[in-house]
Design a protein around this nucleic acid. Structure first.
Length: 746
DNA sequence: GCAACCACTTAGGACCCGGTAA
DNA sequence: TTACCGGGTCCTAAGTGGTTGC
């Protein structure tokens, strides 16, 4: 991991605890699902719906033929998933001291044994990786032919229950570096992971790490801010918090009343009642702001060598915290840096905006580490950890209470590239793939319930439909001290407007206070049900008053083992990518294929409502491009005129400066025209893409929703270098997906 | 049945840095 | 040489969902 070069300008030794588009969105759902005749359907909700593929091996899709059958013939009893018993291996953090050892009383065992075994395992892992690499000796195209003949890709497409052999040895032997020298397995990680990391199971056997690193103590700068135009004296603690505020001068936060009020309340506690500073409005933080800008500039002006030296120094300090050894394997730690103090930057209209996030000390931090591992030395002399635990039912290495909301915790986890995270990532996508086999029957079941006499059932059906069709989030209840955002189950009456004959207009703030605006045509029974749910209610009342996420998820679990609302998002995102890639990819050069990928990625981002704010320079950038295109069009016109004249035996026209242009042959002019036209087309395409994507965030879906195996397999099939799609972070995160068969379909 | 608690995933924005056009 | 831009990295907020205890 590249260490952050960001400086933490505001650090304080505080200790007081509380001083502390309506765009035409692509619907992933076919409209055919509403027509099913469901006469005779059993009302047994406790039955799990068996995947269609299991019932009818030859059936390839969730089509109406199946839906037309009586549900009794489509539903079969499936054993309920075993309820987890709370026994010795409870996944919960124990409240008592049974699993806790106080730092002082813990004897430090020698590290040698585990580290030796770690080394051995790493050596053997490396050896395996090398052996795998040596096996690649056939081109991708040959491999495609070979595997294609052995295992027709159409089979993969038509048999929904096909189990994909990730990294099967037969396939590996047919892989070779592609023509461009990019081979996928160089990114794959030969890790030995437990078959499942389900809850209620041990996450690791041995865990060694060095704890966390704290931000350096606050260094007072002594620059005086002004109060009523006069320099004001501040203690280092007061100055630290003033500096936090001063540095936010250019942000929108300071425009918000809540932010200013919360900051003032917390800062005033530090200032004390009798301080000369009595109101925020009379404060002028400019001297501190200017000082900081100056410091920043000085830093920028440092020589390359000095910058490098600083970076190396930081790396040296942090190196030991960057790694953990999990079951003998060295793994990256994610967020090993304790969050520095600062002013709370919540999203949207968060009621706690601007509150002081006090400094976290070792006495706030609980460490989780293997029983036999040495307890990390507390990096701040004279202080000690709050607690040391040895809980292998969880994956966190450390946690502390969130100073803004004491009920919440901040965890230190392994990096997304670790085997532990990779394993759970893979399980997530496997679950979403499983939904593919159930979705037909699930859709048929909720369609039937749109008109159920049972109001709760009707609400569950409509909510599930919205989650499926619009990829809405579940929508847990929120506390009063959080931003007022909603998901499906918490939609308010005012968030949905029925538009005759059968459209719904959604408008609400979702996660991160990102607005969801979408008008969508829905099944008529859904439309009618929504109107009915709204009847007699006020705008701020719950649309789904008989429903919450627990009830919804409990119901979903009856339909498929492990099914929850969020699985639909993963499923719809991944299946959309898979479908678009396979439908739209044509023979051509890599850049054309990348356009297809980006288009698919964009569709998914729109479905999931992944937005970003338009960059400040967007308009200027567009104007510049327009200008350039205009210039090129002028050139093109001139070239065409010249060609015309040359063909008629006349000399070319004079240029803009009145100078005679060089005589060119018609062929040379044609070539120039072609080049200029190509340039214009490329620029226009760039412009369209830029405008198209100005509010769309593509990264979130790539990182969290798109099964990487779809991408890897597609790259293999179409000889697209994976590095064109996955950056370093994603290549590492998805190491588990690299050995997928080239014919993998989601 | 429900609230509280806990552990984990998902999310957008800030900031940095290197490549490239002017 | 400088300015600009875009991608990468880091940060941490904000979700989801399981479990527990009353």
């Amino acid at each position: 991991m590249v260490p952050s070069t960001k400086s933490s300008p505001v650090k304080s030794p505080l200790s007081s605890p509380e001083a502390s588009t309506s765009s035409a969105r692509t619907s992933p759902v076919s409209n055919s699902i509403a027509s099913a005749s469901l006469e005779g359907q059993s009302e047994q909700l406790s039955e799990q719906i068996k995947p269609a593929a299991v019932e009818e091996e030859s059936k390839t899709s969730i089509d109406s033929e199946e839906d037309d059958k009586p549900l009794s013939s489509r539903l079969r009893m499936k054993p309920k998933p075993q309820k987890k018993t709370s026994s010795l291996v409870s996944g919960k953090r124990p409240l008592d001291e049974a699993n806790v050892s106080k730092q002082s009383s813990v004897k430090r065992p020698k590290v040698s044994e585990s580290s030796t075994s770690a080394k051995n395992k790493q050596v053997s892992a490396k050896k395996e990786a090398k052996e795998e690499e040596d096996d690649y000796f056939i081109t991708i195209a040959d491999r495609a032919k070979k595997v294609g003949s052995d295992n027709k890709s159409s089979v993969a497409l038509t048999k929904p229950k096909k189990v994909t052999k990730v990294g099967s040895s037969s396939i590996k032997k047919t892989i070779k570096k592609d023509k461009k020298g990019s081979n996928f397995s160089k990114y794959s990680k030969s890790t030995k992971v437990a078959p499942s990391s389900n809850d209620g199971q041990e996450k690791w056997a041995t865990l060694v790490h060095n704890g966390v690193i704290f931000p350096p103590p606050y260094k007072p700068h002594g620059v005086k801010m002004l109060y009523n135009g006069e320099p004001a004296n501040l203690t280092p603690e007061q100055e630290e918090v003033a500096t936090m505020y001063a540095l936010m001068k250019d942000t929108e936060y300071v425009q918000k009343k809540t932010f200013r009020n919360n900051f003032w309340n917390d800062w005033q506690k530090l200032l004390g009642k009798r301080h000369v500073i009595q109101k925020l409005d009379a404060c002028d933080y400019t001297p501190i702001y200017d000082w900081y800008q100056n410091e920043k500039e000085k830093k920028k002006q440092l020589s390359k060598e000095d910058k490098k030296a600083l970076q190396e120094e930081k790396l040296k300090q942090e190196e030991k915290y960057m790694w953990a050894i999990v079951d003998g394997v060295k793994e990256k730690v994610g967020n090993f840096r304790v969050e520095p103090p600062g002013l709370f930057r919540g999203r949207g209209e968060h009621p706690k905006l601007g509150k002081l996030k006090r400094r976290i000390r070792p006495s706030d931090v609980t460490i989780n580490i293997g029983k036999d591992a040495p307890i990390p030395e507390c990096p701040i002399p004279g202080e000690s950890w709050k607690e040391v635990r040895h809980d292998n039912m969880v994956t966190w290495l450390a946690f502390w209470n969130d100073p803004i909301n004491q009920k919440l915790f901040k965890y230190v986890f392994l990096s997304p590239s670790s085997s532990l995270k990779g394993q759970s990532d893979k399980e997530k996508y496997e679950k979403a793939r499983m939904l593919k086999d159930y979705i037909g029957n699930i859709r048929a079941a909720y369609t039937k319930d749109f008109t159920s006499k049972d109001g709760a059932k009707r609400q569950i059906a409509v909510a599930t439909y919205l989650i499926d069709k619009l990829a809405l989030r579940a929508g847990n209840e929120k506390e009063d001290d959080e931003a007022d955002t909603v998901g499906c189950c918490t939609l308010k009456v005012e968030n949905v407007q029925a538009i005759a004959p059968n459209s719904l207009e959604f408008n609400f703030l979702g996660k991160d206070s990102i607005r969801y605006e979408n008008t969508v045509e829905v099944e008529v029974p859904v439309y009618k049900a929504i109107i009915q749910f709204q009847a007699g209610k006020r705008g701020n009342d719950d649309l789904f008053d008989k429903l919450d996420t627990s009830k919804l998820n409990a119901h979903l679990k009856e339909l498929m083992p492990g099914l929850t609302a969020k699985v639909f998002r993963t499923y719809n995102a991944s299946i959309t990518l898979d479908n678009i890639l396979n439908k739209e990819t044509r023979e051509g050069d890599v850049s054309e294929k990348l356009v297809v990928y980006q288009h698919a990625n964009k569709e998914v981002a729109i479905i999931c409502n992944h937005q970003r704010t338009v960059s400040k320079s967007h308009d200027a950038q567009m104007s510049k491009l327009m200008e350039k295109i205009g210039g090129l069009q002028g050139t093109l016109k001139e070239l065409k005129t010249d060609l015309d004249r040359v063909r008629k035996g006349k000399p070319p026209l004079e240029d803009a400066n009145g100078k005679r242009k060089r005589n060119l042959t018609p062929e040379a002019l044609e070539k120039k025209i072609a080049n200029t036209t190509e340039k214009i087309e490329k620029m226009e395409a760039d412009m369209r893409t830029k405008e198209d994507l100005k509010t769309v965030a593509l990264g979130t879906s790539k990182t969290n929703y798109l099964d990487p195996r779809i991408t890897v397999a597609w790259c293999k099939r179409h000889e697209v270098p994976l590095e064109k799609i996955f950056n370093k972070f994603l290549l590492e995160k998805f190491a588990w997906a690299m050995d997928v068969d080239f014919d993998f379909r989601f």
